[in-house]
Design a protein around this nucleic acid. Sequence first.
DNA 1: GTATGCTCTTGACCTATGTCAAGATTTTTC
DNA 2: GAAAAATCTTGACATAGGTCAAGAGCATAC
Lengths: 193, 193
Amino acid sequence: MYEIFRQYLDTKIKLTADESLKIQECAIIKKVRKHQYLLQEGDVWKYDAFISKGCLRTYAIDERGDEHVIGLGIENWWIGDRESLLSGNPSKFNIDAVEDSELVLFAHQNFEKLCMDIPAFGNMVNQILQRSFIASQNRIQAALSYSAEEKYRSFLEKYSVFATRIPQNMIASYLGISPETLSRVRKSVSKKH
Amino acid sequence: MYEIFRQYLDTKIKLTADESLKIQECAIIKKVRKHQYLLQEGDVWKYDAFISKGCLRTYAIDERGDEHVIGLGIENWWIGDRESLLSGNPSKFNIDAVEDSELVLFAHQNFEKLCMDIPAFGNMVNQILQRSFIASQNRIQAALSYSAEEKYRSFLEKYSVFATRIPQNMIASYLGISPETLSRVRKSVSKKH
DNA sequence: GTATGCTCTTGACCTATGTCAAGATTTTTC
DNA sequence: GAAAAATCTTGACATAGGTCAAGAGCATAC
């Protein structure tokens, strides 16, 4: 439902009725069922996508066929493959729904136009990008310096919302550890309290 | 020297003489000697910084006192701590010079003003941010799915320029492996040709 | 230009985490 | 709501990569 996205915008920026309408006119509502793909490896990603409900994951598949969770997103997050979006090349990633979900999509060209025409909107988008970048820097730091247990603890601190909604094997993959290791880490963490 | 930065701008965008001057007026030239800090953990980072000459690294120090190289940069790259810049919080990182280097700094407020006033400049900055984000996504993927050898190979493919200029122990740290492992990996890679 | 201190290599050994397999739970499906 | 499928846990074992230590090779400095 678009309403969720409108509320999200309200918390972030002030818009005139006209601007608000312009944005809404570009919006495409998309529902995806659990396990359904939003993007498949090899396709070109052409949207800016806001999750209004549910939960999705971005993952890559390596030569051995193993999945690696690159990103996770729930309500009020944005998701997509910026690399494919900007380069126009086929995506290396898959995005699928972890739960039944709803998204608000914008065709990228429309989205860019909105960013140009409505400065507040453009600035907001920019802020989001900055924060995404910072988040990935922090994730790199964690990947480089943390043990399995530290990875899980810091994940819980930042994203405790995910912990309950996302299967453990996906969390393990997101953290770059095996599901078995995560299971053991959880046990030992819970023992320590 | 500012000239390098001017050339960089020329390759990216078209500016009027007036715009070009406005940018130059905000620029601060900064030289740093090898091993000198540009930013120390605990300080607040307040600049947008372009490397016109030399090579710098961003690193974090963990509780055990071990260094982890978060980022590397050479001529024509930007460097800094966006998290500290945006939040105003003390930085968790150190940035120091790997070689004698020269930078073009902009106080962040001036920089933002330039981005607003000169759309082409703002767009360029945005593009850079997008690319940085994409690069860190790819680095996350590598960290999650690659073996030590694969990490090194893909590093060589992307950043062969670094390979010769940066001490191996820093490259090892950047890749999240020990210097000893990198040394062994290099040996085995060179044997295979 | 020689002495001092980094960096890199190599070997021996260690450990955190991965892999495989079996059983226990939980979730989904019809 | 029973059967089937997926997920999670646990144990036994394997291994990639870490750690420690010593020596070789380079740079830096006086």
